[in-house]
Amino acid sequence: MLQARVKLIVTGDDFGYCPRRNQGIVECFLAGAVSNVSLLVNGSAAPDAAQLARRHNIPIGLHANLSEGSPVCKALKKNSSLLNKDGFFHGKMGFRTVLAKGLLKMSEVKQELMAQVDLFCELTGHVPHHMDGHQHVHVLPAPDI
C-alpha cells in the first residue's frame, strides 16, 4: 500500500523587520529549522533581508502587511483609510475594527498590496514564491460591500 508523503514547510516570517531578526531567521534556515522565509517589505531591514536570502539561497515570499508600520505605496502615505490619525497602519486590532465597520477602501488595500509585490520584486529580482499575511491579515473575511 502506498503511503502519502507529507512535506512540512516552516516559514520564518517578519524577515526584514530588523537586522537582529534577519540574523536569527538565517541561523534557523542554516540549521534546517526553517524551510523558507516571508519578507516584510516595509521593514527597516528589508533590503538586507533580500540580500541575505540571495546569499544563502533561501526561498523567499512576501509577508503582506496592512497592520504595522507605514505603507510602501507613496500615494497612500497620507489620507488613506489604511492609516490612523498618526499616519501609520491601524495596528492588528485597529485594522480588524476598521475592517468590521466597513471603513476600509478595498481599492486602497489592493493598491498597497500591489505596491508591496512591486517592491518585493525590486528587492529580490523575482516574484514571490509564496505570499502570506502579517498578523494573519490574509485570513480575515472580506467586508460586506
Rank of each mutant, 00 (worst) to 15 (best):
G102A: 09
N79W: 05
I25G: 02
V6A: 14
H126Y: 04
H129G: 09
I25D: 01
L82S: 08
L52Q: 14
Q116S: 05
D118N: 10
S38V: 03
P19L: 00
L104Y: 02
G87T: 11
M114N: 13
G16T: 07
G61W: 08
R21S: 05
G102Q: 07
T11Y: 07
N79F: 07
D48E: 15
I60Y: 08
S44H: 09
A50L: 13
D118L: 08
E112T: 07
D144C: 13
L103I: 10
A4N: 12
K92D: 08
R21A: 09
S70F: 15
N42A: 07
G61T: 10
H63Q: 12
P71K: 04
A64N: 04
D144P: 04
A115V: 06
R96E: 11
L140F: 08
T124H: 01
N42G: 03
L62P: 10
M1T: 06
N84W: 12
L2N: 10
I58E: 12
H138A: 09
Q116I: 06
P143H: 15
Q135T: 04
P59Y: 13
K7G: 03
R21C: 05
I9K: 13
P128L: 00
D48Y: 15
A50F: 09
P141W: 01
H134E: 10
D86N: 13
L99F: 11
A31K: 12
H129W: 08
H129I: 06
M114P: 01
G12S: 02
K74C: 13
C28K: 03
L76G: 14
V26T: 07
A4Y: 09
L62N: 06
L66N: 09
L113N: 12
A46D: 11
F120T: 09
H90I: 00
K78I: 10
R55F: 06
L52P: 01
N22R: 01
A64I: 02
G91K: 02
M114K: 13
L113W: 04
L104I: 06
N22C: 01
G12I: 00
H56I: 09
F88G: 05
P141F: 03
K77W: 03
S81H: 04
H129M: 08
G102R: 11
H90S: 02
E122R: 06
D86Y: 14
I25H: 00
K105C: 12
F95W: 12
N84E: 13
I60D: 04
V26C: 07
P59L: 09
E112N: 10
A45M: 04
F29H: 06
E27I: 03
F89A: 05
P71A: 09
L66M: 12
E122A: 11
V34N: 04
D118T: 12
H63P: 05
H129D: 10
N36V: 00
V37C: 12
S67D: 08
H90M: 02
L119K: 01
Q116L: 07
R5C: 02
S70Y: 15
T11D: 05
P128I: 00
L40R: 07
G16Y: 08
G94T: 06
S44N: 10
P143I: 14
A45T: 02
H56R: 08
Q135V: 04
P59G: 11
I58M: 15
A100H: 08
V137Y: 11
H134Q: 10
D48F: 15
V72I: 15
